[in-house]
Computed example of a mutant assay.
Amino acid sequence: MAGQIDARLKELGIEIPTVAKPAAAYVPGVRTGNLIFVSGQVPFVNGELAYKGKVGAEFTVEQGQECARVCALNAIAVAKDMLGGDLDKVTRVVKLGGFVNCPADFEQHPMVINGASNVVGEIFGDKGAHSRFAVGVGSLPFNVAVEVEAVFEVE
């Protein structure tokens, strides 16, 4: 039934944002066969970069989780755009990858990227169970706190 994911989003009070324009020489996503590979998404909120700084220094783990959630919603926006607006065509969230901008001694990368994993699960239910990685890095583009990439299986 078309509109199941849209109904779920409405129930959760979640709005999928508009796709941000790429900041360099790449495209937001590539579809090959039944897979959509979404480029790394940073925390654009209403067209502006948010969450500039390091998790574990300028941001708490909880703030990092919220940043990861924003990045995941931006990744979902890319998939939605590529699917002509119909997220019901997503048959599985295959993988999320999360990069956390943090000090060298920070160890809670998985907790931060749970912000992305949790929102994907809320939206897609069982289809949202995914593989993933969560790593810490010394810097990210524009000094953002988190970047998330995704792979979706689609009809």
Rank of each mutant, 00 (worst) to 15 (best):
D86H: 06
G29F: 08
K54D: 07
G3L: 08
T60R: 10
E149T: 09
G128H: 00
G138V: 05
N34D: 15
G121K: 13
V119S: 07
N34W: 12
E122A: 02
T18N: 02
G125R: 10
L49H: 07
R31M: 13
G115R: 06
G84C: 04
A150N: 11
S39W: 05
N118C: 09
V120Q: 06
M1H: 14
Q108L: 14
V19P: 09
V148K: 02
F124C: 02
G47H: 07
F133K: 08
Q65D: 09
L87C: 08
V93F: 03
I76S: 06
P43Y: 08
Y51W: 14
L12I: 12
I76R: 05
A116M: 09
Q65P: 09
E48G: 08
D81Q: 12
V42D: 01
D105W: 00
G97M: 10
K10S: 10
D6E: 15
L96D: 02
V78D: 00
F37M: 11
E48K: 15
Q108G: 10
I123F: 03
K89C: 03
V112C: 03
A104T: 15
V144M: 04
K52V: 08
E58G: 02
M1D: 12
V148F: 01
G85M: 07
K21G: 04
D86W: 05
V148E: 01
V70F: 00
V119Y: 02
A20R: 11
A77P: 03
C67A: 15
V137M: 14
G3P: 03
G97K: 06
E58A: 12
A104P: 10
N46Y: 08
G98W: 01
V45H: 07
V61H: 04
C71F: 06
G115E: 00
G97R: 02
L140E: 06
D126R: 00
Y51R: 04
Q65G: 03
G53A: 03
D6P: 06
A129L: 10
G33P: 06
V100F: 02
A57E: 15
I16G: 04
G53K: 00
K95E: 15
K80R: 15
N34A: 12
F59S: 07
Q41S: 09
R31S: 13
Q41F: 01
Q108V: 01
I113E: 01
G136S: 11
A2Q: 14
V100L: 06
A79C: 12
R31C: 10
G64H: 03
G13C: 03
I5V: 15
Q63C: 04
A25S: 14
A75F: 04
E149S: 14
V154G: 07
D6S: 12
G115D: 00
E62P: 08
G98I: 07
V55T: 09
Q41R: 08
E107I: 06
P22R: 06
L140C: 07
Y26C: 13
A104D: 14
A57Q: 11
V90K: 08
F124L: 11
P141T: 13
I36Y: 07
V94Q: 10
P28R: 09
L49P: 01
A104Q: 12
K127Y: 11
V61D: 02
E107A: 13
C102W: 06
V100Y: 03
E149K: 05
Q108N: 14
G64A: 05
E155C: 01
P43S: 01
S39D: 13
G47A: 09
V144I: 11
F99C: 04
V94W: 02
I14A: 10
S117H: 09
I16W: 00
